[in-house]
Design a protein around this nucleic acid. Structure first.
Lengths: 127, 127
DNA sequence: ATGCTAATGGGAATGGATTCCCAATGTCAA
DNA sequence: TTGACATTGGGAATCCATTCCCATTAGCAT
């Protein structure tokens, strides 16, 4: 990625506006408003380049294809909330301690992830 | 699943012996010792039937294909440990509270999952 | 403005997990 | 023991996410 193109600008803009982890499909949906001809190939290609460059990081959730978010946000340790109604993922701050205590004897803890499931504010009363 | 076959018995036996969540491939590896001709189709078919019957539940980890474990084990609230060296998954008991406090305003918490990553006792010193 | 070439788009191809298909096999009620 | 039919095995087919291919388009250094 040596050149700044309209499509790349649109993708970066999508991350800036959403302020939450986005799937490739979500990114396409948002960025296509700025660049109607935008193709899914370009989204994937750009995401990979951005990830390699450390600009974004993958957010893996159980049983879900990966989302991506800006590395800056991920810089601070945080976790995620997955809305079961709209399928969107949100960042949540904070982290309960005491995980070390859950560890079986002899196991070494290197990292952890917590995923909260439920309904986001918008889907609070949705079916 | 109306009939008790050798292959189904071997699969149930695999769960009983392993006492940890197993992937379809792991189940095949273990159960094929009792039934050499066992096919992967049968493993998948049986897993689905067992899941539908509520005998086992799927264990979803971030970025991983599902494992399965007996529902009895899952009856008690617990979480999982994923060994980065051998890729095995283990149950861990306990759960830190305070997750409610991480929730953004207006969000409703329905469930959560915690995945610990690191090295199991066996891989403690592995490369 | 020009030219080199990186980047695009979209349809085809890939890869891994899972399901389907169906002739052969094995279970179990009678 | 027998027969109806549930179950099996394994190769083909499907599914979905992602990547590849390549002719066309368009940054950007000069």
């Amino acid at each position: 990625m040596e050149r700044m193109t309209r499509q790349r600008r649109a993708i970066e803009e999508a991350f800036a506006q959403a302020a939450r982890p986005l799937s490739p499909a979500e990114i396409l949906t948002i960025a296509v408003r700025a660049v109607p001809a935008l193709g899914l190939s370009t989204v994937y290609r750009t995401l990979r380049a951005m990830e390699d460059a450390g600009v974004i990081v993958a957010v893996q959730l159980p049983g879900e294809p990966p989302r991506y978010e800006r590395a800056g946000v991920a810089g601070a340790h945080h976790h995620h909330f997955h809305c079961r109604a709209c399928d969107k993922v949100f960042d949540v701050r904070g982290c309960p301690g005491g995980l070390q205590r859950m560890l079986p004897r002899g196991f070494v803890l290197e990292d952890h992830s917590i995923v909260l499931e439920g309904r986001c504010a918008d889907c609070r009363h949705a079916v």
